[in-house]
Nucleic acid binder design. Structure first.
Lengths: 358, 358
DNA sequence: AGTTGATCTTAATACGTATTAATAAACTCG
DNA sequence: CGAGTTTATTAATACGTATTAAGATCAACT
């Protein structure tokens, strides 16, 4: 009896030898191409038997080289996903992606990078590792647009989690509807009688920020309020948000409510807690506060800020679905999808303080 | 002037043509092998220039095919769901595996499709899908030994997270040292004056259970206490643990302390909380309680049970390291490694109640 | 000039698969 | 029974890279 070839993983050649046929025949049987049904039933059985005995699995790299798929979906993040600490903004996306990926019969490939968050690159080492997967879900705030553009150019199938636009090429994404969510928040505040609503935005002009600003303006317009540009302030580092700052804005500009864009880390909520601790400003008595997104981690002892919450798991699911649609040619790129955020009442907004300045 | 070859992505051949050298030279320059410095500086520059102009990036598939390694580490779990939920018992293992995998230049392949399929077998469809990866880390309590044996037979490189033994073949694993941890726990209790220590074990004879039992006996022996077999009780379903049961064991067998093997779900801690809620037995006043492992989720409102804790993240790291060692031929299989557990004092043990039975 | 080295470049090959074109075998039919 | 037809199999090739052994060019030295 011929011993199984004991070196490394079995290949089609090994199967062929064992079944007494050619490699080509093995390929026909296994990958079932168009000519596949021409092969005799007896040989088919022989090949399958030999393959099973050897524990054969097709080599991913070889198939990819040949231009074939492997039912592998990649996930790449521009920031680390797996949090050792509990501050995991990106984690729920991964859960959603995994869930759908598994349900649709794909396996999930996590592209984690050795390099620190700063110089994280898809093309590290002059290679695009992502291509070993059939397609990829990308996420992260600090996206390198040049690399996104490069991916589009080499038309690698991918879906971005979050809205991203490129000057030249178009890409597919699944985003949270920040515009509507922010607008609704403004409407809610207006309903409470607020007319001077401060909006603290991130300093960079990324899409999530731009969308929130658009929503802010839209909400004001809907409420019949004029936009005062001095009520839109950029915050480079949320940690710099102090009671003094806030008092300044309240006193000088007459703000009665503030909308803040949270960061993925704990800086913002820490700063807010610090302000609340001074007892110089009470939320919502002196000033209503609403977060335009999720604070990084919900921990039980954390204040229940009024906010809206991204459907992160559902976004992950949708991204995986969309990507698989693209891969299986049910849809042409690019596709865009926005999912609604949910309103979390919380306890940090309330009626506007009576107009008279003390 | 020669136009850039307008078909798909540029390859080394394209670069070669443009720079007027051979593909081999291009490869030497780009991938900088051992012979790389023999290439003349002028040609090197020419090649690099051409590469830059064409926007060349190496093809991963080709590289990996050539390198005979996919640089993929798999993770497979015998549990019904993939531990992608943060609160899952197995999640920290995944974190550790991911971390080391990335650090050593591999990517992580989650076999979620295999896990979620109806016939959840490694060999679903007659093929061993795990072979996609270069090697695999396996997890889970309810192991299918036949499949493990099959993997060993095909000598597929894998490492099990947790001690597992097979009748015939040997396999590599990274385990928690349950024997020492349990023994130490017994020693601690003995130090508190306990002489009748009840051990509630899982009903199945899996290695983790066997190890704990061995540790229990070893600890008693070290403390100079005899083993009373009637103090070793199997618990099919932890939910069946009631105040009545416990009172029975305390009253009838004179137990003053109890060691319990936790399950991965919340059944045990729920049952214990229920008992505590009846106020018929107070821990540790009436009876000391220690868990032989981690309760599934640490939530802040949960009682701080005395227990030992597995170094799950570190185990994950070690498993990945071991597997990569095996893959890169630095080590022969099988390898075994046990990591020490850490003692968590908690508040559920105390001095033995005075001997007199009320 | 002829031999030996040193330096640089390239032809050839293997990695494992999928596919096309070609071949061999068996079968049909006039 | 040979020509044509169908059916089953395989030889040959391409995918893009890395590497080894061999070739070419030129300098140096007997």
């Amino acid at each position: 009896m011929s011993l199984p070839p004991r070196k490394g993983r079995p290949t089609q050649v090994d199967i062929a030898r064992r079944a007494g046929v050619s490699q080509a025949t093995v390929s026909l049987v296994i990958s079932g191409g168009a000519v596949s049904d021409q092969v005799a039933e007896s040989t088919r059985q022989a090949v399958l038997a030999a393959a099973a005995e050897l524990g054969y699995t097709a080599n991913v790299a070889a198939r990819r080289l040949r231009g074939k798929r492997n039912h592998l979906l990649g996930v790449y993040t521009f920031e680390p996903v797996f949090p050792v600490d509990q501050r995991d903004f990106y984690y729920p996306f991964l859960v959603g992606v995994e869930e759908t990926t598994a349900a649709l019969g794909y396996d999930l490939l996590l592209f984690s990078s050795v390099t620190s968050a700063a110089d994280r690159s898809i093309y590290a080492g002059g290679v695009n590792r992502l291509r070993i997967a059939d397609g990829c879900v990308l996420l992260g705030r600090n996206v390198r647009r040049d690399e996104l553009a490069a991916l589009v150019r080499e038309d690698f199938p991918f879906v971005f989690l979050g809205r991203r636009e490129l000057p030249d090429g178009e890409l597919s994404y699944v985003a949270a509807d920040y515009v509507t969510a922010t607008s609704d928040m403004v409407t809610t505040l207006a309903g409470y009688g607020h007319e001077r609503i401060l909006y603290l935005r991130a300093i960079e002009d990324t899409e999530p920020t731009l969308d929130r600003e658009a929503g802010y303006r839209q909400g004001l317009a809907a409420a019949g309020l004029a936009v005062d540009e001095s009520l839109i302030q950029a915050l480079a580092d949320p940690a710099e948000l102090t009671a003094e700052h806030l008092e300044h804005w309240i006193g000088r500009y007459g703000a009665t409510a503030v909308l803040i864009e949270p960061t993925e880390d704990t800086r913002l909520t820490t700063a807010l807690d610090a302000i609340a601790a001074t007892a110089r400003i009470r939320f919502p008595h002196d000033c209503s506060v609403a977060l335009l997104g999720d604070p990084p981690t919900w921990s039980p002892d954390q204040r229940d800020w009024t906010r809206f919450s991204l459907p992160r798991i559902e976004m992950g699911r949708e991204a995986a679905r969309m990507l698989i649609d693209l891969l299986e040619d049910r849809q042409d790129a690019p596709r865009h999808r926005s999912l609604p955020c949910s309103f979390v009442p919380g306890d940090s907004i309330g009626p506007a303080p009576s107009a008279g300045p003390s």
